[in-house]
Amino acid sequence: MTMQFSLKRIINSVYRDVTVLRGSIVTGLSIAAGILFIAFLLNLGFGDHSITAEDYAGTSGLLYVLFGVLFTFSIFKEVHDQKKNHLYLTLPISPVERVIAVWITTYILYTVAFTILGVLIGQMAIIFGSLFSKVNLHFISIFSEEYWKMITFYLFVQPVFFYGAIRFGKNRMGKTVLSLLLVFLGILFYNFLIYGMLNHDFDVFSGEQLASEAFNLAKKDFSITGRWLFMIILGPAMFLAGYFRMIEKEV
């Protein structure tokens, strides 16, 4: 019996996804390049005439996440296309291989491609700026704490969009964002309820110093715990849910 896991099939699947989406990838990266170029020029013009590693992360961060989410949704377009999904689902690739291949494409390859694009466009903006304004010619630097935060943040949020992309057939992005908002509001309400139930005797709702300190403390403590919980449980859980969705998918 053929193995359900093969590295070769994963590589072939990544190659297939990238080839099939070549047009969308080129268009997306071209748009991102245009926006980044203008943003870097504005940064050079209004800032200290240089692009620091922090500037790079600040300028490209939002675009990186936004285009990453769009790419994650586009990679599952074939699954929801009624005229294409027969051929997609009958390709001899196991669901585990598909999930891994999609993650490699939409996270690792995308991050590398976007970073290289950002460096090239940033450097072009510096050269352009040095020719036409007071900008000093320098090499762009990208690796800062903000850059790694941006990559880590996308690592956390991407699985949610991965699941949304495979779960919903129509208005996928809207439904995913709405679901995310509902979950967020639910957790917020739940936290508030628990916090209120446990602390109402301590006058922490009076707006006094104690209340804000308590909130700050709770926020600080919870953010680290929550982040780890998200990383260890929710992220893989979303991939697992996506895996089962792929197994159960009928067309």
Partner: peptide, 26 residues
């Protein structure tokens, strides 16, 4: 169960379909 070994032995030509807009060789 759509196992790889099973799918490697089955091919379907559906009635209605759309192929990705690639070159035939690609």
């Amino acid at each position: 169960k759509r196992t790889v070994s099973c799918l490697q032995n089955v091919f379907i030509v559906p009635e209605e379909f759309e192929l990705n807009g690639l070159k035939i060789t690609t």
